[in-house]
Design a protein around this nucleic acid. Structure first.
Lengths: 204, 204
DNA sequence: CTCTGTGAACATCTTCACAGCT
DNA sequence: AGCTGTGAAGATGTTCACAGAG
């Protein structure tokens, strides 16, 4: 996760024309400690030069290769509701190499709608599209009760990594990489911290 | 975070009419180990009975109180774009006690649009609404370049916890609780794992 | 016999502090 | 002097394994 944050920060620096950067600067810009930054980067090789710092462009390139962002990732999105459409139209994905090659929905209502350059396709065509584009990444934005079935179909069709926005904990085979993004869960960590802030637990 | 996951799982069990539940069941349903579940719960008190398990209803209540979900949380949302509107209309927030009391946008275009029962309000009224409802939670769904300013205004007006969906690392005073939800960052951890899966690092 | 609660062992993550390069 | 890379120390998080309650 931190590598991805560094990567984005480096891109910012590149745009601003910085030539080199120190671990302290990266630390301040990303909210971690300088030692942490150095440890993280050193784990993958010696990218810096002592006494000077890191070359912004070189380091940015290294990070992108490490994160797998030096290639295009065909991605499918299932669930064309409000959230699905927001994600399908989000330019941030494209600029980082994530190409949405298909948006799917069971509900025939949004099918046929155009999201940017994409049609919403019926679920029947899911497997076909995944295989045609070799999509390894799937994004799930369907309601909780449909999430497990969608996850299984994605995996069976060849998807190996899933970003799950539904409020349901997916149960998928070992080896499939799943990240669960659940908004209410995040809000609940906020309220937890608000409640325990002034009380006995100073840890939080 | 895990507490929030347990809490939701417990609610599912309650709906299905289960009377008691063991740490093993919770573990299977939430993707953690049984020992972890017990440690987590025991940290806040002795909620179970040995040889039997946990009373579903009692434990669910305890978790909600621990997470601060036994009260209503007035919440403001800034940024009425695609994502903002998806979140404003998300019923999942309401059922867990998060009441969105105001949706705001600089762009006069969506101002006046109705999101469910809510009007989109101009930014000028931000402070007024926060203070009127005593909102302590803010959700940011504005572009990166506006995020920092919005964050500062929220904090100045009394907000103490922020859920940030913009691709920008907020820099706010100590004591303000910030959770950063960045979709591309999550996707990048997926690609990182995809790339390093078959290679030298067996850790991932 | 089942299942919780928990100290002790283990593993992982983070910070410190300094050697070594520029 | 300035800054990286890194072993050692410290902190935190997780699992084990078993005592004890029902």
């Amino acid at each position: 996760m931190r590598l991805a944050v560094y990567s984005r920060f480096l891109e910012q620096l590149q745009e601003q024309g910085h030539g080199t950067v120190s671990s302290c600067m990266i630390a301040r810009g990303t909210g971690v400690t300088p030692a942490q930054v150095r440890k993280d980067l050193a784990y993958f090789g010696e990218f810096g030069t002592r006494g000077v710092g890191y070359d912004v462009e070189a380091l940015s390139g290294h990070l992108k290769r490490i994160l797998g962002l030096d290639r295009k990732w065909p991605t499918v999105l299932v669930g064309a509701g409000k959230l699905g459409s927001a994600l399908a139209l989000y330019e941030g994905f494209l600029t980082r190499g994530f190409h949405i090659v298909g948006v799917f929905d069971i509900d025939p209502d949004p099918v046929g709608n155009r999201f940017g350059q994409l049609d919403v396709l019926p679920m029947e065509r899911l497997e076909e599209v995944i295989q045609r584009y070799g999509a390894q990444i799937g994004i799930i934005t369907v309601p909780a009760n449909a999430a497990q079935e969608v996850g299984e179909r994605l995996v069976d069709a060849g998807v190996r990594a899933i970003l799950n926005f539904s409020p349901y904990v997916l149960n998928l085979p070992e080896g499939i990489i799943v990240r669960h993004v659940d908004f209410t869960l995040h809000l609940e960590t906020l309220t937890f911290n608000l409640v325990y802030k002034k009380e006995e637990f100073k840890t939080f």
